[in-house]
């Protein structure tokens, strides 16, 4: 019966097919160290138990200072182009990228937000419901790294927020310069998002300078509980590997969440696959 299942949507291009679990960039700041899909996920995918809908879609939000290269990064991945000229993103833009992961169709909806402060009031409305938050900074500009999160000194508050016991009754703070991660997290349930810290413009640094910048970023990534990547949209270095990693992690998480939901509702509703078949 399983083998007779129809194909799900048009075929994805070959370099969007992810069969084995993509590796981290550096073991010093990564979200998972395993090199295979979760056993349950593998099994579910083989038997197409991956939910009744047949389409999985995750929302990815890319935030960070203006001119760090958020749009360039996304365009390199989705369109394989690089434009030297800077054009500020107005408000928000998006791309949808289709994958096939462990034989199952899967899409990333990548939201590209404006880095200019004046657009924050528009862009922040799109933070909600993100499964992945990518905070980008410019490897050649240490300030942009600092802006990915609040200035050090309020670490206690951040830990507080991270643990999901955010004090109630406090007025919602206004967005201020930087604080990209805090703003994005505020719109999402605590602990529900994968966080990536991405250093851009890797091509502009010497190997030594890059190493130095990375050391600092890895330190911050660990504080943020984020996975760290260095990329170059200009040369394309690590771009595909990075988004494959994002897709695989998000995919695995949503399959696991589905399986969990499924097993708890199966007794009452029955197997959803029966409806589909």
């Amino acid at each position: 019966m399983k083998s007779s299942l129809p194909p799900l949507g048009p075929p994805v291009s070959r370099d969007r097919v992810i069969a084995s679990f993509p590796k981290w960039y550096t073991p010093d700041a990564c979200l998972q160290r395993k090199e295979q899909f979760h056993g349950q996920v593998n099994e579910a995918c083989q038997h197409r138990h991956t939910g009744t809908v047949g389409l999985k879609l995750s929302k990815v939000v890319v935030v960070g200072d203006l001119y760090v290269g958020k749009t360039s990064l996304i365009h390199r991945f989705c369109k394989n182009v690089f434009d030297r000229d800077y054009k500020a993103t107005i408000g928000v833009d998006f791309e949808i990228e289709r994958f096939e992961i462990a034989g199952v169709p899967y899409s990333l909806q990548i939201w590209d937000t404006a880095g200019q402060e004046k657009f924050k009031c528009i862009a922040s409305a799109y933070y909600r419901g993100a499964q992945v938050i990518i905070t980008a900074f410019d490897l050649t500009d240490v300030q942009t790294l600092e802006h990915t999160r609040q200035v050090p000194g309020s670490a206690a508050l951040r830990v507080h927020e991270g643990s999901g016991t955010c004090p109630t009754g406090l007025p919602k703070p206004e967005p201020v310069a930087g604080q990209w991660l805090e703003d994005a997290l505020r719109e999402n349930e605590a602990g529900s998002c994968f966080i990536f810290l991405v250093g851009t413009k890797k091509d502009l640094l010497s190997a030594a300078a890059c190493e130095q910048a990375e050391a600092e970023a890895v330190h911050l990534a660990n504080e943020m509980q984020a996975e760290y990547w260095s990329v170059s949209a200009k040369t394309g270095e690590n771009v595909k590997a990075f988004f494959s990693r994002v897709a695989a992690l998000a995919f695995e998480q949503s399959v696991l969440q589905d399986l969990e939901k499924h097993s708890s509702s199966r007794l009452q509703v029955g197997d959803g696959d029966l409806i589909r078949a």
Partner: peptide, 13 residues
């Protein structure tokens, strides 16, 4: 099958 997926995409946006 495919329409469902496309539709879903549309409504998601």
């Amino acid at each position: 099958e495919e329409k469902t997926t496309i539709k879903k995409l549309g409504s998601f946006i």
